[in-house]
Design a protein around this nucleic acid. Structure first.
Lengths: 213, 213
DNA sequence: TAGATTGTTAATCGATTAACAATC
DNA sequence: TAGATTGTTAATCGATTAACAATC
């Protein structure tokens, strides 16, 4: 039944998490229905865009009424695939790794963080956010057993060049990449989300200069 | 002389940091010149897009030759405004705050991190990445003296609602926002860059599901 | 000069917005 | 039924790509 044909644009997909967050907030506040117009005002979008976005996936609303908040939230979760639980590992338990492992709710985003890998022997064996820290050399054995499909890459850029091929060989297909190593360019049939915080800061520098005009 | 007229699209601006990184790498490797075609192959873009992007700001290349790597890097730095040094503060010295303060090179992105503010009394008075940690209540006095223009917001979403108005009152105009609090919707004449790591992870969930088709 | 490659205009493509008929 | 609001088509807008004349 769910055999959608036309490929959905990534621009639409990238807006879905924000819809999801607003719907979760509305649900928490006890709101049961919302119109595209109301949601647009709340999110500072056009009602037209919201209806267009949602209709890529099917008619979730009811004419004359609007959208059911919980229902729409569930639909979006299903489209994003965050109602699933895919095995994920993390590389790196340094400052950034600790922040991500403790700060991000993997389960809410459709992943299950299975273990964290580190080179620093002082950290190996300890725990972080309820997850065991293993040595990087155990990756291969671990993956053979647990078959994680995704990785959160919280390592220095220099380390990425060596580790990414190993992860690929282990069957890892999805990367949440905090390094500047360009994974997508080097491999096919994988998915990558880059989080370039430094680039965001540079963009902020530009916007800051623009404010001063 | 630099009185550009037409407003440059944000899509172009967001590509500039990546150009800058590649040019910095090339410069480090001793490459002095590069053509749009070569750079396009390296970055997996079209040569056309690169030339179009750069020509929003002026003719940095030389026909029949290409672009001077160092020269172009400097031009991009100047467009982004990262050759400047704007006062920035950070709120939050928790896991995420520690990661950002120690992991991100603010100077390379045009900012000077002046101080970090925390509510946790155990952290106040200590240092983090060479920066002093002050109590949040000292923000107003600090800003009166040092006039930072930007802030890195590494605090829980609940805290943002109270703190953002205080920051605005202190003259802060630019926000690197790691919370889900929607600053841009609430104020005018400010600039915001949101880093929504959770949203990126949800997008990765979608891409992962798409791989499995 | 000949070859290469830019700067720039024109063509294409995609994404957003507007409009309105369908319908709850 | 009348009013409201969706689903969807058409119009607009913007961004990317292609093409080529200018020129180093």
């Amino acid at each position: 039944m769910n055999s959608e044909k036309k490929p959905v644009s990534l621009a639409v997909i990238r807006r879905l998490p924000r819809y999801y967050r607003y719907l979760a907030d509305l649900e928490r506040a006890g709101t049961t229905k919302i119109s595209s117009k109301e949601l647009a005002a709340l999110m500072d979008l056009t009602a037209s865009q919201i209806r267009q976005d949602l209709n890529y996936f099917g008619g979730f609303g009811q004419q004359g009424y609007g959208y059911n908040v919980s229902g729409l939230k569930t639909e979006i979760a299903s489209i994003l695939g965050i109602n699933q639980s895919r095995g994920m590992i993390q590389l790196g338990a340094g400052n950034l790794g600790r922040a991500i492992a403790s700060h991000i709710d993997f389960a809410t985003s459709g992943f299950d963080l299975l273990a964290i890998f580190e080179v620093d022997p002082k950290l190996v064996g300890s725990h972080l956010g309820g997850h065991q820290i293993l040595h990087v050399d155990e990756i291969e054995a671990f993956c053979r057993q647990q078959h994680p499909i995704a990785v959160s890459l919280c390592i220095p850029e220099e380390a990425a060049e060596d580790l990414v091929p190993r992860l690929i060989a282990c069957g890892i297909k999805s990367f949440l990449n905090f390094t500047h190593y360009d994974i997508g360019i080097h491999y096919d049939n994988i998915s990558v989300e880059n989080v370039y915080i430094g680039d965001s800061l540079m963009t902020l520098a530009y916007k800051t200069a623009a404010l001063e005009q």
